[in-house]
Every structure is written in structure tokens, then in C-alpha cells.
Design a binder for these strands. Structure first.
Lengths: 168, 168
DNA sequence: GAATGTTATATAACATGTTATATATTTGCG
DNA sequence: CGCAAATATATAACATGTTATATAACATTC
């Protein structure tokens, strides 16, 4: 059996580690979705959820809402259009912007998912993380906020900008 | 300003969230590497570190050590061969297995990185995470161990098994 | 009000992960 | 031994993220 270097290296490989766990979690979530007989990809759900929560959004707003780049959002919305879950039309006041809204089929999917799949996934993840020794969601929020406030490279001098850097 | 749905949805989108943060961290790590003038990708480092720690490893062992699938390891090792950081030769006792070892250039890179880049990255990530309200690395280890013990889909019934009774 | 810059989206090219499958050895059994 | 099964790696096809750039519509400036 070979040592798990990413785990062994700790903070040095935190990026790889988070990505790896995230990919695993998303793949497992996909299994739950498939088992429920719903024909959608796990990564497409946040787009539908964003529109469901906020009403019609443009491609750029969706990219922001989901936290990916605009070309990625363009592609995923293209897939959701193809699948018939969303409609798209130019904004009346600005022909450059495309307003994406839920189709009837999309609304049905969201309503059904809210009632069945989402609670199951949330419960399963809660079961997985619920009693961890720390509030994982708050910690992730702190990491994101801190990265936004001061990117990693600005923290990379050994005598870093925060005294905290020496605490561990 | 648009709401961050992935953050809002909390546990339901934990997979996407972890992936997104991991990607961001790896991209930021790449900046540190580039600034140091080293011609390597962040994602290639764990392979070199694994060989540095364990000695020559096969493709399959490397995949395990880094936590990705074998075709991914084959590709990355192909890149590192191309860059001249590793050598590869068939195992003497089994012609199917390919032993990957550090070349002189690879050893130099690892030694240099150990002295300069890795401490910087580790310090920057510690600065980012050091005083979080919980031991992030231990929590991630717990998540990985629990997922290995009982995959998410087995936890997905609402009246499902509890992590405590199964994975601890 | 035409030229120029800015913004929103689309597209191209690439990176790096995955699954499925082909190929080449090795192993094991009749 | 000889052939079927298993194993290690390579390759193909795809998924989904990125950056860089093209195109179309809007805004601004002289």
C-alpha cells in the first residue's frame, strides 16, 4: 500500500486535496441523482437553483452566482437549453445580454428535486460532516473571504503579512 | 451583485464548493511557482514528491499515491518524462510495470523546491487557514475516511445510518 | 453623429480529470 | 505445456474547468 502524498503533505497540497474531495463528493452526488431517475448532471443543478432563487439571470450573472467563468456558464446553459430545462431571450433593454429563465419543464424539475433529491443529498452530506470537529461551512466561507481579501501569492513571503502565519 | 448560490445552498453544494476552492488555491499556488521562476505545473508536484519520499514507483502506485486514476497518472508522468524530470524503465521482474524515478534534473528541482517554493506555499496556506475555527486537515481526513467507509449514496436515505455509528 | 472604447456573450484552444477499452505481460490451472 | 484469466499500462472519447480572443451591442467623446 502506497502512502497518500497529498494527505501527507498537508497544507502544501490543500488545493489538490479540496479538489479531489470535491470531485469525489460530486461523483457520489451524481449517483444519488441517477438512482432517483433524474436526467441531469450534478454540476447543472446550481444553475437551475440560482434561477429558481433569483428569477431570470443573464449568462454573466449565472457565472457569478455559480462561481465559474463566463465561458463555462455559456456552455452549461447551452446544455440546459438543449435539454429543455431553461429558455433564453435577449434582455429588452440591452440586446447583448441574454436572460435565462426556467422553462415549465425546468420548474417541474426544480420542484421535484426540492421535494426529493436535494433533501436526500443534504441529509447524506450532513450525515457525512455533521459532527465534525468544527463548522466546516463557516471555515470554507472564511477561506473564500480571506482569499478574496488577500490572494495567496500576497501571503507567500515567509515573514507573511499576518502574524498568524507563524502560529502554525 | 448576485448571490453566491453554491455558498447559499450549503451542504447541498459542498462538492462544488470544495472543488471550486481547490481550483482557486491551486491556481494561486501556480502563481507562487511561476514567480519563483520554476517551469512546472502545480499538479505535477505531488508526483515528484511521492517519488522523492518513497523512491521509484510504478504508474499504478503513483496514481494511488496522488489519488487520481491510472490514465491521469500515465499522462502526467508522460509530461514529466518530456520535461526530463523523471526517468522510466520496465521493472526487472515484471515487464508490464514501469518504474518511474527522479532524474538528476528532477532531484535538483525537488531539492530546490523543498528549500524555497514549498515552504512559501505552506506558509501562505497556513496564513490563510491557520487560525480557522477547527482543524481543517483533520476534518478533511475524517471526510475522506468516512466516504471510504460508507459512500454518500449509502447515506442518502433520509432515515439513514449515522456517521457516528459507522465510521468512527 | 461617427469614431472609439467598453461590455456581454460566443468560440477556440488547452488542461486535467474521468470511464471504457485495447494491448502486452504474467499467473494459474487442466 | 498451453491456454484462459488477471494485471499493468496505454489510448480513446468525453466532461468540465480555464485563458485568450472574436463579435455584436451599447456608451462616450469630440
Amino acid at each position: 500500500m502506497v502512502e497518500d502524498v497529498v494527505r501527507t503533505l498537508g497544507l502544501l497540497c490543500l488545493g489538490s486535496r479540496l479538489r479531489r474531495i470535491g470531485e469525489r463528493l460530486q461523483a457520489d452526488t451524481q449517483q444519488v441523482i441517477d438512482e432517483a431517475g433524474v436526467a441531469i448532471q450534478a454540476g447543472q443543478y446550481p444553475f437551475l437553483a440560482a434561477i429558481d432563487r433569483a428569477g431570470p439571470l443573464t449568462i454573466g450573472e449565472l457565472a457569478q452566482a455559480v462561481g465559474i467563468t463566463q465561458p463555462g456558464a455559456t456552455r452549461t446553459i447551452g446544455q440546459l437549453l438543449e435539454l429543455g430545462f431553461v429558455d433564453m431571450q435577449p434582455a429588452p433593454d440591452d440586446q447583448r445580454r441574454r436572460l435565462v429563465s426556467l422553462s415549465d419543464k425546468g420548474k417541474e424539475l426544480v420542484d421535484h428535486s426540492k421535494a426529493t433529491i436535494w433533501p436526500r443529498v443534504a441529509a447524506a452530506v450532513a450525515d457525512l460532516c455533521g459532527d465534525l470537529d468544527g463548522p466546516i461551512l463557516e471555515q470554507l466561507a472564511a477561506i473564500e473571504d480571506r482569499l478574496a481579501a488577500l490572494p495567496l501569492i500576497r501571503r507567500s513571503t515567509v515573514t507573511g503579512p499576518h502574524a498568524l502565519s507563524n502560529a502554525q
